[in-house]
Amino acid sequence: MRFETLEQLADICLKENKTIAQVMLEDQAKETGVPVDEVFRQMAEYYQVMKEAVQKGLTGNTKSRSGLTGGDAKKVADYMQHSEASLGGPSAKAMAYALAVSEVNASMGRIIATPTAGSCGIIPGVFVSSQERFGWEDDKLVNGLFTAGAIGYVIANNASISGAEGGCQAEVGSAIGMAAGAMVELRGGSPQQAVHAVGLALKNCLGLICDPVAGLVEIPCIVRNGLGAVTALAAADMALAGVGSVIPADEVIGVMLEVGSAMPTKHRETGKGGLAATPTGRKLTKELVEQRRRKAKEAKQP
């Protein structure tokens, strides 16, 4: 790729009068030697998997193997049917869809990692709900995935997209930044505005630890995806309104690395700190270990 930072990416867009999506698509094709239309087709397939996951999460059984989670997306969707959501309908829908995809993931269903499975709800939540709201064609959203991908590419190479390396800010935080920047471009904002949206969104996620109960991608990952979709929409709106990130997005990404590197091991996906180590977190973990032992005994496994 021709860019390593978001500033470089925005400069290329400006010089060549292209969107972030166009630059990412072309650079990907050049880097891998795969024709542009083939690269686009692959991404279009991924978008279909995302839409299917939204539907599955809203209508299917999403009870996880542990039994700890499932069905929250439906609760939010039902609530929206008979109550006025405090967030407003469109944001609440994005939240419900993000929960839906995350619950499909937790129940070992098929999803697209964006950028990871732990954060797989945010981009589909924002994208699929916005598609319905604005009547966009699929291809427009597929382009949006390239915008999101370009932003994630910069974050991944300059900081991290792994909870074990950099905490939840690296997973849910990255996804929020990617969704926010993509949403700006989908709404007709400039590449510079999209980059500001990334900076604004990431600032609100710095320091978020990765503390899943029993090490499962369930509590608190699923609700963080639901709330993350809402944050992404908010950051996109700020940027579209002309609000800038005073600390440039690339420097905020640097802070993500700094904070992630300083994070104790117990707060980086080991299931040993944070929410996982609360009295309730420990109790749930203990119950699951016992349940697993019982099942192993029944199955006559070691």
Partner: peptide, 28 residues
């Protein structure tokens, strides 16, 4: 600039950011 370490680009492909298509629950 933040760690002073020589950096190599660990991710080289947009489909390692958007993707893979996978069965959950954890990409890593």
């Amino acid at each position: 600039i933040y760690t002073g370490a020589w950096k190599s680009l660990r991710f080289k492909n947009v489909f390692s950011i958007i993707g893979p298509s996978m069965v959950g629950p954890s990409s890593s």
